[in-house]
Structures are given as C-alpha cells and as structure tokens.
Write a protein that binds this DNA or RNA. Structure first.
Lengths: 194, 194, 194, 194
DNA sequence: CATGAATGAGGCTTCATTCAT
DNA sequence: CATGAATGAAGCCTCATTCAT
C-alpha cells in the first residue's frame, strides 16, 4: 500500500544516506526529512515512528536481497556452488552500495535491543536460506553428515559478517568481491565429509 | 594508581550489572552510582566521564581476559590445541558471567562510533593472539600453507562471536561451553592442510 | 528573519524580567521560558544557547539605543548640546525601564569573559558615538584642542556608568534624569578650551 | 588573629594568581589550595567559605591601599595636589601588580550581587577619601562652591575605574602611570571655580 | 496530503563543603 | 592543625512527535 507511493522509498533512501554520512546517533528525523525533500511531519504519514523507518529500511534493502538470493539459487547447482553464489551476491551488494554497507555493517548495530530484535527477524529469512543450503549439502553428501546445522549456519554467517565489517572498517581499501572465493573455500573445507 | 583503589572495580562491576539489567541506554550514571553504593560525584573521581566507565569496563574485563589467554597458550601444545583452549576460555568466560555476556555481546554494541573504536583497540589484542595461533599452525604444517591469515582470523572471530551472540539472544537456553569442541573441529577442518 | 517573529522579542523581554527579578545566576532557561509563556525547547528555535539569549538581549536593547542616539544627534546642534542629549537619553532609558537598568548595570556584569567580550563589541558602537562628539567639539573649538580623545571618552563613559550604577545600587531612590545636566556641566567644564 | 598566620596571606595570594590566570569562574577552591600548597580542607580553617576568600582578598589588597592613601595625603598639600597623589597611587598599584589589576578590574566584577555589595563596603573607604579631598577643595575655593560632592566623587571614581579597566582590557599595552597627570587635569578643570 | 512550529521530558557533570583520620 | 576522599544538588539542551493550518 504505502510502499507503492514514491515518497516511501524516497524517505528510506534518504535515511540510508543520512545515516551513512552522519552516523546512527546523528541521523535525526529532521535531517532525513530534509534529505528526502519533505517536511518533518510528512515522515509520519508514511512511517509510524523513527524506528519504523529503520526497520523498513532494513526490510526493503535486505528483504529484497534475501528474496533475490533465494530465487537465484533455486534448483540449479550443488550446495557448494550455491554457497559460493550466495557469498558472492552478498559481497557484491555491499560493494555496489557504499552507503548501504556502512549502514548495515556499522551504524544500524548501534540501535537499541528492540530494533535489533526486529532486524533479526528479517535476518532469519537469510539464515533460512543458509540452512537450506547446509541441509541440501548434507543430503547430497557434499557436507559431513554429522555437521551441526546451527553451528554451520553461525560459522557461515559469522564469517561473512565479520569479513564484511572488517572491510567497511578498513574503509573498503580492498576489493571485498575477491574474498568470496577464498572465504567459500575455507567454509567448504570445514564442512566437507572426508 | 587508580586501578588499585577498590572503588574503581566496584564502579565497573556496578556498571556491568546495571547495563545488563537495564540496557545500554537506560544505564544512567546515577543508577551505576547507586548500584556501586557511592555518590554520583564519586564516579568522577575515578572516571573522566561516562564513556570512560564503559571503555574501562571493556579494558578491565576483556583486556585481562586477553592477557590470560595469551599466557595460557604460551609455549605448550600445538596450534590446534591452542585454538581449542582459546575457544573454551572464551565460552567459559561468557558462561561464567551472565551479566558480562549480555553487556559485551549485546549492549556495548549500541555505543557510539567513538566508543566502538576504543573497544576495537582492545579487541586488536585478541585478534593478535588469534593471528599468532594461525601463523604457528601454518609453520607447523597443521594448517594449510596457503591459508590467508586475515581471512582465517575473521573466520575464527566471526564464528565465535556469532555463536556467542546467538546464544545470548536465545537467553542462554543451552550450554555454550559444549559448543567449543564442535566449533573448534569445524574451524580446524577448514584450515587443515590436506 | 528570526527577529521579525514575535516570540524572539517575547523571550528577550522575558529574560530581562527574570534576570532583574532573580539575578543573573538564578535566571534559568526554564524560568525564562515560563515567563515568556513558551516551552523550554522553543527557546532553542530562536537562540543558539543561553549565552545567545543574553547577547541578543544586549544587542537588541543597547544596540537599538545606540542607533537612536546616533541619529538623534546627527547634524543639529553643537558638540556641547549633543553631549547633553546623549546623557539625557541614556539616563531616560534607564529611568524608563527599571528592569533593564538592573540587568545592564548590575546583573549582566556577572557574565563570563566570553559574554562580556561580546557585550563590549556592542558598547564599541556607543564609544564611537562619544568619540564623534569629542572630535566635533575639538574642531569647533568648544573643547580644548589638546584634549586626549581616549581619555575624554573614558571620562564620559566612566562618569555616566558610575553615576548609573550608583543610582541602581541605591535602589533608584532619586531621579537620575535630574543628574544629566549637572553631570554634563562637569564634563564640559573639564573639556572646555580656556 | 587568623590574619597573622602565614597561611592566611598565602591563600589570598594564591587566589589572586589563580583568578588572574584562570578567570573568576575557573578559580575553584581546589585550584587555589593547590597554588597555595595546602590541602582543600585547610582553606576552611582560615576562611568561612569561598566568598570569604574573595572578600578578604579585596579587603587585604584594597583595604591596605586605601589606608596608605589616607595617610599619604594627610595634612600636606592642596586638594588639587592630593587628588593627583591619589590617582598616581592608584595607577601605580595596578601597574606594579599585573595579577591584581586583572582580578580587581575584570574578574571580581563577575561575582554575584552579594559579594559585590561586600566589595562596595570596602570601596566606601576609598570613596570617603575622595569625598574628603572634594570637600577640602571646595573649602579652599580650589573647586567650585556649588560642586555636587556625590557627582564629583562618581566622576572621579568612574573616570579612574574606566581608565584602569580599558587599560587592562587592552592588555596593558601602554603605561597607565603616564595617564595620571592628564586624567587629573581633566578632572580639576571640571571642578575648578571660575 | 503536506507542512513546520511548538512541545517537554530527561541526564551528565561540576565543585563548594564536610569530616574521619 | 592538616588532610583529601567523598558528597549530592542542580540546570542546559536535544529531538521525536504532534496538530493547527
């Protein structure tokens, strides 16, 4: 509904820019409104409150990304190949959108516990995709049959996330996209049945 | 110096409890003072400002932990064994101190960028310990000679951190200490030369 | 700009009253807001901070006074007559506004060095007006040709200021406006060429 | 009594230095104590409270100055000569003690109304000396018989004070002692019977 | 739909003073 | 006499949200 109105995405995109350039705690509603070219009050016609902007931001940006991933890896290829595709897609996304990388890896983590719980809800979709790959890998005997799915998922997500955060913190001095393959190899090595 | 005065640690311990029980943004100085059993102003005889309490908290708790780890793994054992000791020590620390686990895994991450940079300085000591183990493992041929140290470090740290955060977020429903061994095995599998 | 908005002067007038009645150090922002009939936060829509209220107060009240004086004495009359007009205008201003007299002669002097420097900037305009009169008097030979302008200025300003301060400190028990003429005579006697 | 103890003057001298170098509002009791080489608490063995230090400071420094003046001008000379001696003594005092000049002309004026009233009590002794000179001058017919004593006193004090304050504000760039004679001449011109 | 002026709660920090040693 | 660690009251300012226009 609201989401089809042009100002909805306009405000979210403004929020990404403002947060990336000013930091989470300096991203006042009035600043986002000015960046979006609307009045402060207009924000509240599209979002319940400030937290709602941030949740929606994460849902729109990461939610659509997760769906893409899900479709991208549907059917074709082995679990090993799918994992590579996923990591590559993840690193490509961050590499392509400088502002979004800063916001998701650094700034949004400063949000309070409530907001982080809501963000985790969105991430659960991502974790499910990871779980699907792991289970598929175990069934196809690519991965060890006694591989603990939760641990493997935490390893994959933790490694990708830490790699991405380090890269952003180092001011993106190197090409993160080139890390997809070696990261993938390390993970697969750990999971492989032998 | 300051650190030998009993009130210094008294205030830090109070801060851990107050932050864990009320959350980062609800941890007012007055609350910490009351918990420590001192007057508000007394805090400022031992700490420059509120941020200084939090930095000191992290330095005292994690800094000493890192030193312990460093000494614990000095000399004895293979890199593989040392990595296990480190993971066990990390999980034991969090498991033994419920409040500290919440503070370091969840609450302190809400701090602003300045504080997080200072926290990262402390963590660098931890990352150095990890690096030492990795390099030792490569030299002893336990780990693959073409293992990228930075990637391996990010994999180790990311996996441990994500495992710990998930555990805290799940309200510590399971024994995280039991995860040390399987986490270790997964990591070693990934690094092993073959 | 701001200055045309009614609340701007409303807040400044409130500040004069609150400072006069409570003293400089007891003039909290919340008290000024209440006196002005606005919320505390509204103050900060019109002033950068508390100091800005006080500077603006002085600029508005004295600044406009100085401009008035400047225009009043433009052209018409001798230097001697102009000096009288100036002294009368000054005493009339204080006499007409009890609160303002207290604020400018007693309370605002308690401000810190920064604020006092800003206040001095405003006063420089007044000193320039005085200087103009002195120079004119010297040129017209009303005043001695070897009269030191700086000294004469300090004598005029010092005498007026001390007279006013004494009057306020004596709780305005006598009519200060009646002092304009004798003060003027004394000063002119001192300056006269003979 | 207390005043004969060496630490009494030690603390007052420390206060002058601390206030001159840090400003009135940055002259904390602890800073004065450190400068005096005593413990904070020791201050309160010699002074009732902080205000008492400042009043005592003014009493000791200006009080003794006023007594000196009073004796210096006793008997000898005309009123005109006495006025010159007084102005010279005043300017010499400020010129000889840089710190004291800053404290009395700039910093102590920031004190609250109560303290300033107490300071005025001390100054009354000075004003009495001035009054004596004026009355003597009127009786000897040096000054006009219809000279208003209060106005003349305010003129003398206001001029001296403004001259001194301007000199301190201009960072004492010129020799204030050289101004005694011309200031004196201007005042005498104003008062002279003719 | 859109505006933007107005609201008002809430917390970190300073520093004069005390008093047990 | 002297110390100095401890006290605790008190205020400026920010910014998410509302609502009259």
């Amino acid at each position: 509904m609201k989401k089809t109105k042009p100002k909805y995405m306009q405000i979210i995109d403004a929020a990404v820019i403002v947060i990336a350039e000013n930091g989470y705690h300096q991203a006042q509603v009035s600043k986002i409104a000015k960046q979006a070219g609307v009045a402060d009050g207009t924000i509240y016609l599209y979002f319940k409150n400030k937290e709602d902007i941030l949740i929606s931001l994460f849902e729109e940006k990461m939610g659509s990304f997760i769906e893409e991933i899900d479709q991208m890896i549907a059917g074709k290829g082995t679990a090993t190949e799918k994992l590579l595709m996923m990591i590559e897609a993840h690193f490509n996304l961050l590499s392509a959108d400088h502002h979004l990388a800063i916001v998701t890896q650094l700034e949004l983590r400063q949000s309070n516990k409530d907001l982080r719980l809501r963000i985790n809800d969105v991430l659960k979709g991502y974790l499910k995709v990871i779980d699907k790959i792991i289970i598929e890998g175990k069934e196809s005997d690519e991965f060890s049959s006694d591989l603990d799915v939760r641990l493997a998922r935490q390893m994959i997500f933790g490694t990708i996330d830490e790699t991405a955060t380090s890269w952003v913190m180092n001011e993106e001095k190197y090409e993160i996209t080139k890390l997809a393959s070696p990261v993938h190899r390390l993970l697969i090595n750990g999971f492989r049945s032998r």
